[in-house]
């Protein structure tokens, strides 16, 4: 008789909420397809322990203004379209984006200070040109976001967008408009598991359903505190699977913005000869960062470089056993 190997598989009492973004004409929207994330009953890629019904997805970033501070490596694939969010979004879909993450950077009062009406125009442009669902991310200035989102959310009524972000300090307006116009929300916290939960509770107390939230626990680029974010994400996911309904949301990671801000991805070869070609290094840095967060439980990755996106999507397929 052989030795019986004990079953060490883990099972969890609770599934992560299933969140669908976008709406087809049947559901009152105009999207050609919708994106669904969450629903997993096991740790990331542990298909042998539970269900992973919806693999992680990649959203690509589009701005309402040209990405002036994007390094050349990541500007080049978009160089012809950066002035037009619609064309930019089309490029992203060609590169394989599952969703578009439209960032309303231009609304920042310390930047171009575009009007809410301008923002609406940018959003509408993207809706017209692509059929994928939309994430709409504010400029980060609370007062301005509270001016912009009421108009934007109304303009995309019925499209079931993912809007963000709400924070502990600023959530009421976004919760109200997302409720009124039927959108989902990104709940942001500063790499703090307690605050992550607190933002969710605040949204819930304001009447927003927990199963319409996505957690954004803040993201760090590879080499910039990634292990800390990782542990926070892992604990969030373990709490959610373990039965904490206030933590059982899909998780979003804002990869591109972080990675393309660090010198390891940005620095040209002339400055750092020993680091090698930035055309390879930059996308690799972004993809590697993405892999790490996938392992930590990311459901939505917001990214920039087409090569990094391609590699990441291939990685997801491969690890789920759907491809060679």
């Amino acid at each position: 008789m052989g030795v019986e190997v004990p079953d060490v598989k883990e099972s969890f009492p609770q599934a992560i909420y299933t969140v669908t973004i976008g709406a087809t004409p049947e559901d009152g929207g105009t999207r050609a397809k919708v994106v669904t994330v969450g629903g997993e009953t096991a740790l990331p890629f542990h298909t042998f322990e539970g269900e992973i019904p919806h693999p992680p997805v990649v959203a690509m970033e589009v701005w309402d203004v040209p990405g002036e501070d994007w390094p050349d490596v990541v500007r080049e694939p978009f160089s012809e379209v950066m002035g037009d969010p619609g064309a930019w979004a089309v490029k992203c879909v060609e590169y394989g984006a599952d969703l578009i993450c439209l960032r309303l950077v231009g609304c920042d009062p310390n930047g171009a200070d575009k009007s809410p009406e301008d923002a609406v125009q940018a959003v509408k442009r993207v809706l017209e040109t692509v059929g994928v669902p939309l994430i709409i991310w504010g400029c980060g200035n609370p007062e301005k976001d509270n001016e912009v989102f009421p108009l934007v959310a109304e303009a995309v009524k019925g499209e079931n967008c993912l809007l963000g972000t709400i924070t502990q300090d600023n959530y009421k307006t976004l919760v109200a408009v997302a409720t009124a116009y039927g959108h989902k929300l990104i709940a942001e916290s500063p790499v703090d598991i307690n605050i992550a939960k607190q933002v969710n509770i605040l949204a819930m107390d304001a009447g927003f359903p927990l199963e319409k939230l996505v957690i954004y626990p803040s993201t760090g680029a590879l080499g910039y505190g990634i292990e800390y974010v990782y542990s926070i994400m892992e604990r969030t996911r373990l709490a959610g699977l373990g039965g904490d309904k206030l933590m059982a949301m899909p998780i979003l990671c804002d990869i591109g913005k972080e990675v393309w801000g660090v010198k390891e991805a940005r620095a040209p070869r002339e400055e750092q000869p020993e680091w090698g070609d930035e055309r390879l290094r930059g996308p690799l840095w972004e993809a590697t960062t993405a892999y790490v967060y996938l392992m930590a439980g990311a459901d939505i990755l917001v990214m920039r470089h087409p090569e990094a996106v391609r590699a990441t999507k291939a990685f997801i397929e491969k690890i789920l056993g759907r491809q060679g």
Binding site: D192, I193, N194, I195, K197, Q198, I201
Partner: peptide, 14 residues
């Protein structure tokens, strides 16, 4: 962490 969890009303862990 205990401190942050307790800064909520009445607590993060209801």
């Amino acid at each position: 962490e205990e401190f942050m969890a307790a800064k909520f009303l009445p607590h993060t862990d209801l």
